[in-house]
């Protein structure tokens, strides 16, 4: 099954897990499974309209899924996804 790696700041909302093995044929299914298992992650990953917050990036290896097929990007059994935040402020 694909693995989703959780960055340090979000681990407290995933019971301290650094990586989650999640069933899913695409990124959307992996995220859906993860948020069902760890609902406290939702407020930091999703905005009020249930879309990924703008600073939340998901990488498949070295590639941002925005450059692939977004959350519909298909996954293989041994793929590793990383959640990488972009940081902004003013």
């Amino acid at each position: 099954m694909p693995i989703l790696k959780i960055p340090t700041p979000l681990r407290p909302y995933a019971d301290g897990q650094g990586s989650i093995t999640a069933p899913g044929k695409n990124v959307s299914e992996v995220l859906e499974f993860t948020l069902e298992q760890y609902p406290h992650l939702k407020k930091h990953l999703l905005s009020d309209d249930q879309q990924l917050r703008p600073f939340v990036n998901v990488f498949l290896g070295e590639e941002n899924i925005k450059e692939l097929q977004g959350i519909e990007t298909p996954l293989k059994e041994d793929d590793i996804l990383l959640i990488i935040p972009s940081i902004a402020g003013g």
């Binding site: 990488f59 070295e62 941002n64 990383l82 990488i84 972009s86 940081i87 902004a88 402020g89 003013g90």
Partner: peptide, 26 residues
């Protein structure tokens, strides 16, 4: 305004790992 891109954060994570450290803040 400032922006640190996801690519820079990914690079930062790798550099921190090589140093045996973690990103603890901005």
């Amino acid at each position: 305004r400032y922006l640190i891109t996801a690519a820079d954060m990914l690079g930062g994570e790798k550099e921190a790992e090589q140093l045996g450290q973690s990103i603890i803040g901005i």
